[in-house]
Design a protein around this nucleic acid. Sequence first.
DNA 1: ACTACAATTCGAAATATGTCGAATTGTAGA
DNA 2: TCTACAATTCGACATATTTCGAATTGTAGT
Lengths: 107, 107
Amino acid sequence: MSNCRIINLDRYATIFKALSNPHRLQIFNILTGCCEPGTTCSTDEVMSCCVGDLDSQLNIASSTLSHHLKELHHAGLIEMQREGKQIFCSINPAILKEISYLFSISN
Amino acid sequence: MSNCRIINLDRYATIFKALSNPHRLQIFNILTGCCEPGTTCSTDEVMSCCVGDLDSQLNIASSTLSHHLKELHHAGLIEMQREGKQIFCSINPAILKEISYLFSISN
DNA sequence: ACTACAATTCGAAATATGTCGAATTGTAGA
DNA sequence: TCTACAATTCGACATATTTCGAATTGTAGT
């Protein structure tokens, strides 16, 4: 297995598991931003990334949302930072690059 | 949501779910080939892709392997083709490109 | 037709996941 | 300190997943 691309199966399994649920994937999708680079989205859905904003877009109980965010965070896909009463979520760009690399050399 | 990259959340969730289990990820990894392009692997692990070969590498019951293969196939990640007594598995290259594209524009 | 091999389906069991509402924690303002 | 808002934790429950061994199906050779 010395030449294998995926060295740590469990780690990547955790990452893909985090993306395996439609609600979490939706969160991930919102957080990566809905627009192609260079284009403009309608203002109300751009960069809404505090937990409450996600809550209003997802139609699930906030406790469930919290659970999903925890899972995305645990997988290293998102970062969370308190700002006053709110907690802001953002994508971890490093892991995005990593996954991108993983699939780009799988062809 | 008109500009969203991930149009069909459920479809991608299914794909990522297929990759979310260590055993399935291992199968996927073996099937994409263990070598970087241009390098050579030890002969015994290159392109071993009939079900029996996977079975000997995975250390799980063959019924379990069968179940995992079904899930990978259902997600569209692998193709399966009978040749005599054996069934050969291979990666669906189209879906690999698709995922690669998905993450390359997420940066 | 019989046998051997390859792989799948079936049924069952243990464990994990997704979800909710209620209760709790953390923060800021009055 | 009291109140209101934001978000999480807890406990419970229904459903899904992972896994196995036994039984079955499919294929090729004798």
